[in-house]
Computed example of a mutant assay.
Amino acid sequence: MSDSLVEPVPGHPAAVAQTTRRGFPERSLVVADYHAGIESGLRYERGVELPSNAAVRRERLLSLLDRTEADRLVVLGDLGHRIGDPKGDEAGELRDLVAAVTDRAEMTLVPGNHDGGLTDFFDDCVEVTDRAGVRLGDVGFCHGHTWPARDVLAADVVCSAHEHPAVRLEDEVGGGRKERVWLRGSLAVEVFADHFDVDVSELEWHDPELVVFPAFNNTSGGTWVNVPGQGFLSPFLPDGLVDGEAYLLDGTRLGDYRNV
């Protein structure tokens, strides 16, 4: 992927974004779909017994914060897994995580569909944005379960999540494996103008690039973007993505995601 305002960290489902906060330039580490407490959630939802991976998740994230020397952590939604107020193991994981992160950097949460109970959970130590997203300088952020705000779309790059995008790759003998991927491409202005019921000329528009983040949590499922019949979850996808290409976590370009 070419140099831009948002650059993935090679080998990791995370990126560094050049952002601005209160008029000052910042270096932000951006991750999506952390799903703290997912193991206890799967136990309750599906009867699946998995040991907690909370400490490993936290150390992976803290290591990336240290490695990238980020001023801020931006979480593109679904920081927690439970839909509602966090309880038990999830609440404990969230408290430990936020304490460790905010000892190193500022923290911003763009709420996702799993974060309904987190608005007041962190007091003032985490900035929780509007659900339609936030713009930090030239980069806009949203979770993707709702339409982004017009101000977010006025950015040069729009970062989104929610899909947990992945591809199914097959070998010459028919074996297959799932790989998390990035999706990157141009946004279709007409789709968003139709949504807001305005003329294209009424939108502040800088031909933004869309970056759809892979899930940070490697236990969660996702949208297999190259498997027929797999529908997207975001209301603006796939119609809002003009020329989306898929990239593996190591940076390998796979080309048009529909033809992988």
Rank of each mutant, 00 (worst) to 15 (best):
E172N: 14
G11H: 07
G221H: 10
V110H: 05
L109V: 03
V110M: 02
Y44P: 00
H195C: 00
G140C: 07
C142F: 05
D156W: 03
R180E: 00
G47V: 00
T223F: 09
P86M: 04
S40G: 02
M107N: 04
C159L: 09
G88H: 14
G240C: 13
L64K: 08
W147D: 10
G112A: 02
V225K: 04
V30C: 09
C159M: 12
V260P: 02
G251E: 05
D243R: 08
V139R: 02
A132S: 12
L109C: 03
T20D: 15
A32R: 05
E202I: 02
S220P: 01
D207I: 02
V167E: 01
F213W: 03
T223R: 13
K87S: 14
V191G: 00
F236C: 05
N226Y: 09
H35D: 04
P214C: 02
V173N: 14
G185Q: 10
G88E: 14
R22L: 06
V225A: 06
G185C: 07
A36E: 12
A70I: 09
R104H: 07
T68L: 04
D71W: 08
S63M: 04
G37H: 11
T68S: 13
V242L: 15
W224G: 07
S201M: 06
S201I: 02
A91N: 02
P86H: 09
V9P: 01
S160H: 05
M107H: 04
E90H: 09
G92W: 15
G77K: 05
W205P: 11
P228R: 07
V211N: 05
E172I: 15
H81A: 01
G229N: 09
V75S: 07
K87R: 15
R43H: 10
L210F: 09
G11P: 06
V139Q: 07
G47F: 10
R131H: 06
G175R: 15
A246L: 11
M1S: 15
L109F: 01
C159F: 09
L241K: 10
E163R: 11
N53V: 15
T146V: 15
L187T: 08
C159I: 08
P165W: 05
T223G: 08
E45I: 11
P8S: 02
V173P: 01
G41T: 12
H164K: 10
R95P: 12
L79D: 03
R60C: 08
V31R: 13
R67H: 15
F122Q: 04
L79F: 14
L241M: 13
G117Y: 03
P51V: 13
D85N: 14
L248F: 06
V173R: 15
G240S: 06
T68D: 07
R180Y: 00
G133T: 01
A215Q: 08
G37K: 08
L237A: 14
R95I: 15
G144K: 02
P8H: 01
V189E: 00
E45M: 12
D33C: 09
P10G: 03
S2A: 11
F213D: 02
D124N: 12
R131F: 08
N226K: 12
D250C: 08
V200D: 06
A14S: 03
D96M: 13
E127Y: 11
L136C: 04
E163T: 11
T119H: 04
G140N: 05
L203N: 04
